[in-house]
Structures are given as structure tokens and as C-alpha cells.
Amino acid sequence: MINLSAISKSYRQGNDDYQVLHDINLNIQAGEFVAIMGPSGSGKSTLINIIGFLDQHFDGNYMFNNVKVSDLKRKQHAQLRNQSVGFIFQNFKLITNQSVGENVGLPLLYAGMKRRDIVSRVTEVLTQVGLPDSYKKLPKNLSGGQQQRVAIARAIVTAPNFLVADEPTGALDSATSAEIMALFKNLNDRGTTVIMVTHDEQVARQTNRLIKILDGRIQSDEEVRHANT
């Protein structure tokens, strides 16, 4: 599904180009559950921003389901963000003055869906993430774990091809992290591809594939052995 070959990325810092990613080659199949680990500043976010269509400016070739992503126009890029990927951030990124339901329904609005259909779909995914009665609540009245559930609901509401999560448990305590991880695991078991950046060895071990990054290069890429298999 995702084929990265020779991906490089530089940021301009003052007068110099600072290269963050060096020649990344990576294939991810539909249905995988991937963790990306690495020290702070190693380029993890940069990489998944490219994978998740948030960043269009990179060198190399990114094929997504046989479409060359770098050839797409900005508008088509926006469409990919809307339809094909669900993005989950460390700090939730919910619109604070809109209700939970409206936040979750936002991608559907941009997909052109009618308001009535949106409400029923949103109610459905809120139930799926374990927040059945929160449609009318404001995000600030929810706990961090619940807010991240809302963000996950928003990510899955358009039934995208894959989810990208940048340190989704980074702002949560370990008990809540475990709940969120269980939710991701559940989604993956039902067939959703999940790509997740994390600092937490504990979290990474629950996935099926662990990619380690150091200084913008892939250091290792191996299957995760689970204790019970």
C-alpha cells in the first residue's frame, strides 16, 4: 500500500539546508501495525508527516496504492488527507469551541456529506471508541484519554486506508495509554492499518513491526515477537 523509495527531506535553517531524512526506503502493507521509534529529533514526525500526506515537499518517490503522491496537486493532496488517512496527534488537536460530535464530523463535512448522515455516522464511531454519550460535550470537559478517543474517532470516521499516530500516548498516563493502545489494537484486528510513532518501549512492543530510526536513517526494521506466540 505504502511504498517509499529514496525519500530525503531537508529543512531550511537560516542559510543552510539541514537534512532530516536520508534515503528512506520503506514498504508497508495493508493491515500492518507498525511502530516507529527513535530519539527525539531523529526525524520520526517528519517521516510520518510525509506518509500521512501532511507534507508534500520531499525528494524521492512515494507511491500510495500505485499513485505517485509527489505528482498530485494540492487539492488532490487535501482529498487524500480527507479520504485515505486518519491522523492522530500527541496533543489531540481538537477544535476547542466545537462539540465532540462536530469535531468528529469535520472530515465528513469536507467530504461533502449531508448533516443528517454525518450525525448518525459520528454517533456510530463515538460508540466504537467507547464514548457513546459525548456528542454534545465540549472537548475541554473530557479527560486526556477521552480527548484522544475523540481524536481517534475523528481519524476513523471516513473509514480511511490507514491511521497515522504521532506519539498518541505521549501525553497520557500509563493506565490511559494502555486503554488507547487496546483501542488501536482492536482497530487493527478489524483490519485497519496503523502506523504509530512512540517513545515508549512498552507501547511499541504491542505492535507487530518495529522500525527504529536514528539521525534520519532506518536503523532496524523487524517483526515484534509477542510472548504468547
Binding site: Q79, K93, Y110, T158
Partner: peptide
């Protein structure tokens, strides 16, 4: 700004 970013991240086009 944050709201704009969120809207773009979930698929709003520049024109929208």
C-alpha cells in the same frame, strides 16, 4: 491558526 491547521489536516482544501 490551530483550527485552520486541524481543518487542513482532516482534508480542507486551500480554497475551502
Amino acid at each position: 491558526t490551530q483550527e485552520i491547521g486541524i481543518r487542513m489536516a482532516v482534508g480542507a482544501s486551500q480554497k475551502q
